[in-house]
Amino acid sequence: MMKAIWNNTVVAESDDTVVVENNHYFPADSLKKEYFEDSIAHTTCPWKGRASYYSLRVADELNKDAAWYYPETSPAAEKIKGRVAFWKGVKIEE
């Protein structure tokens, strides 16, 4: 079971992650939604598409834009559709 951990709190866990470019993409339904806030940030990947972001809030601490996902993936990135990945100090552990 893979876990995404930030601020000593598990914010997502699943035994069904997809690894792309060394990032574990968690199914959206594995997120502990109470820690996630929508962000206005967006970036574009040439082969995956336009990414949207979530910020994490745990124990009144904010990790801005710490998770990303692709609302509409390109055909080449279909396997990460509906999945979320992490960075900015979020640890991924088994």
Rank of each mutant, 00 (worst) to 15 (best):
V19N: 06
V19R: 05
V19P: 03
V20P: 03
V20T: 02
V20Q: 06
E21Y: 01
E21I: 00
E21S: 02
E21D: 11
E21K: 03
E21G: 04
E21A: 03
E21Q: 01
N22L: 13
N22C: 10
N22Q: 15
N23S: 13
H24L: 01
H24V: 07
H24M: 04
Y25T: 04
Y25P: 00
Y25H: 05
Y25G: 04
Y25E: 12
Y25A: 07
Y25I: 05
F26E: 11
F26M: 12
F26N: 13
F26G: 12
F26H: 15
F26Q: 14
P27D: 02
P27G: 05
P27N: 05
A28P: 03
A28R: 11
D29W: 04
D29M: 04
D29G: 10
D29K: 15
S30N: 14
S30K: 15
S30M: 11
S30D: 07
S30H: 13
S30C: 13
L31S: 12
L31E: 11
L31M: 15
L31Y: 06
K32L: 12
K32I: 12
K32C: 02
K32H: 15
K33Y: 05
K33Q: 11
E34Q: 14
E34P: 03
E34M: 09
E34R: 03
Y35P: 11
Y35L: 07
Y35R: 07
Y35S: 10
F36N: 07
F36H: 04
F36D: 07
E37V: 15
E37Y: 10
E37Q: 15
E37F: 08
E37A: 11
D38N: 13
D38A: 15
D38R: 10
D38W: 01
D38G: 03
S39V: 13
S39T: 10
S39A: 07
S39M: 08
S39R: 06
I40D: 14
A41M: 02
A41K: 13
A41D: 01
A41I: 01
H42K: 12
H42G: 00
H42T: 07
H42N: 03
T43H: 08
T43Q: 05
T43G: 10
T43L: 06
T43D: 07
T43I: 14
T43N: 08
T44H: 00
T44F: 00
T44R: 00
C45A: 06
C45N: 08
C45S: 09
C45W: 01
C45Y: 01
C45P: 09
P46E: 11
P46K: 03
P46F: 00
P46Y: 01
P46V: 04
P46C: 06
P46G: 11
W47R: 09
W47E: 06
W47N: 13
W47Q: 12
K48C: 10
K48T: 08
K48Y: 12
K48H: 08
K48Q: 12
K48M: 09
G49M: 06
G49A: 09
G49V: 08
R50Y: 01
R50E: 14
R50L: 04
R50C: 06
R50F: 05
A51V: 04
A51N: 05
S52C: 08
S52K: 14
S52W: 00
Y53G: 09
Y53H: 10
Y53I: 09
Y53Q: 13
Y53M: 11
Y53F: 09
Y53P: 08
Y54Q: 08
Y54H: 13
Y54M: 14
Y54E: 15
